[in-house]
Design a binder for these strands. Structure first.
Lengths: 340, 340
DNA sequence: AACGTTGTCTTCAACGTTGTAAAGAGTTCG
DNA sequence: CGAACTCTTTACAACGTTGAAGACAACGTT
């Protein structure tokens, strides 16, 4: 039987409300009663029932974090950071996996889950701009990723174009001239892949290198096996590339595996760079050069935006806000070479 | 403003309770009223407030899943599976990271988190047997891992001894004779590492191979860098091993990296086997031979046990239950060799 | 001495839901 | 034809909490 306010109140010989007042730091309680109540709380081991409290207060204390899948280490890491950031604001995180399904993402933005929530943070893959408009009436929404979709949602992002340009510039700086890209998604005009592809093209153009569509390999899904297949394809071209920029680290890991399996030395014959900075890349063989978004900053910004929207002054900032978080380029063996 | 029972009731011109009755499939409702209420529910878009419902029902609808860290892909994957299994039972999962801290693990087993919970599933690292006894009064607890700790908790496990014995037997079957182990934890008499070490010793003994303590490398933490350091140590021995069994895949990945970096061919000069079957190992270079626990079965069993304990007949099965889930050995390039 | 002020504590109602019990409307039966 | 039954719906209270407002005492002010 959990201890309730009633139990504490009886033990301290005060009303339930006085105990509540002590707990909520209501000022007009004598030091004497406060001490007595405090003691009763400790003796009984009372802990508030946040469910009941939030019912009364008209909030829920929950936010949803919806990511494509926890199996992707990038999202696993981000999830851990969001949980930590949310706790600082007395929020409990409900983790949801959308598996890239448009329906599941719609369910998140319209707050259709079983639990009521104060806000939602979504890392979108499949939703379309029109989905976003329907969601206006539900809980505040924070999207992770560039604002290429108009709609009533805050955004947290890194500058994907600049980041991928930085990565490709690094490859060019190494003297590479035939640079491929793995991770284009031809069907999608919006979304991460199009931005990263744009950065790739910008870097090529700035260096006066030709854009060769044969070197841009589309993938269906950002997972290791697709990266491997893409690399296999590139290696059998008549003129294979001397460097590959992969739109995320999972693709890069798969690509490296495929290359090594065929005896292609990395970075000697092909340099590889990725995006996300997952631990797997840092500790793989060879270790992976990559763009490292500041994941802690992303988590903190997302939770903070959600918090602002749910606070009392939410009317004031009706305009959707954008927050840009920093990134760095981490140069490792897959481009810089092995240090023996 | 969320829709409540009251809104639906007004629209259907019935009492709140009748709406509740319809929702809960109370049999004595005429088809006519039921239809009218159903329509009102659809028109208003009513969705029950599970928080209020569970407050009234005296349950919470939450279980805690506490894992060391989501960054470990094994736990990330397991977490996803537990969330799915819990949803089938109308449970919402609260994910907690213990980071191997004894205090945080204690907090889980004594239900000290902010939210009330119906049950807890813990993958323990640091708690000691005595911690478990204190927890008897709180929510039902399911532990992931062998019952080497007595206490009032259910257990879900694979046969760690048999599993590691299987892995080492595989190495022996390849003709390896100096087989090292990475991942011993000398201080801990209980826990995963001691069981896996035991399986290792059994396999050696069964094959008539000597047990050489110099080949058993302790680590502080099951992470990639520790595996790399351990492998570096093994390679500089006067008589280095020709195979290594790592107590988990992260250690194995780190170990392989360290070996490859030094130009040691895998599996030609050293074969490597791991434990956990994380995706990273399957797609790394070379791909990792490993023990694959049936993670879906673990998740399902854990949630199912928790469910039994919270059901109405909880008194009947006062005895702690153990469930053993299957595993398989996945043979890949790190022992079988590269297929070009 | 009557009054307002201030501080301290309590009563009451409500958040959204469901279990209990009772009320109302037929039906069946002795 | 009243009693006993069945079916259907409703009123009420309660889960644990907190905001609003009230009760009461002690105090200072005119």
């Amino acid at each position: 039987m959990p201890v309730t306010l009633k139990d504490v109140a009886e033990r301290a010989s005060v009303s339930i409300k006085t105990v509540s007042n002590v707990i909520n730091d209501y000022p007009f309680v004598t030091a004497e009663t406060r001490a007595r109540v405090q003691r009763a709380i400790e003796e009984t081991g009372y802990r508030p029932n946040v469910g009941a409290r939030n019912l009364r207060r008209g909030r829920t204390g929950f936010i949803i974090l919806a990511v494509p899948e926890l199996e992707n280490p990038y999202f696993a890491e981000l999830t851990g950071l969001v949980i930590t950031a949310a706790r600082r604001r007395e929020w409990t995180v409900l983790v949801e996996q959308t598996l890239g399904s448009r329906e599941l993402e719609q369910a998140v933005i319209t707050s259709m889950g079983p639990q009521r929530i104060d806000a939602a943070i979504l890392s979108p893959l499949a939703i379309e701009p029109e989905d976003l408009l329907q969601a206006s009436s539900s809980a505040p929404l924070v999207l992770l990723g560039e604002r290429d979709i108009a709609g009533p949602a805050d955004h947290v992002m890194i500058d994907n174009v600049a980041a991928s340009r930085t990565a490709v510039e690094h490859l060019i700086g190494l003297g590479r001239r035939r640079i491929a890209l793995i991770g284009d998604e031809p069907g999608k005009a919006t979304g991460t892949s199009s931005l990263r592809t744009a950065g790739y093209r910008q870097a090529l153009a700035a260096a006066g290198l030709p854009y060769d569509p044969a070197l841009v390999v589309p993938v269906k899904h950002y997972e290791r096996s697709r990266g491997a297949a893409a690399m296999a394809h590139l290696l059998q071209l008549p003129e294979p590339p001397d460097a590959v920029f992969c739109c995320n680290d999972l693709l890069a890991v798969g690509a490296m595996h495929a290359a090594l399996k065929r005896g292609v030395a990395i970075p000697d014959r092909i340099a590889v760079a990725g995006f996300d900075d997952i631990a797997e890349g840092a500790h793989g063989y060879p270790s992976l050069t990559t763009i490292a978004p500041d994941k802690a900053a992303i988590a903190e910004a997302a939770v903070s935006l959600a918090h602002q929207r749910t606070g009392p002054g939410r009317a004031t900032s009706a305009e959707p806000q954008d927050v840009q978080t920093p990134f760095t380029l981490k140069i490792r063996e897959s481009t810089a070479g092995l240090s023996r």
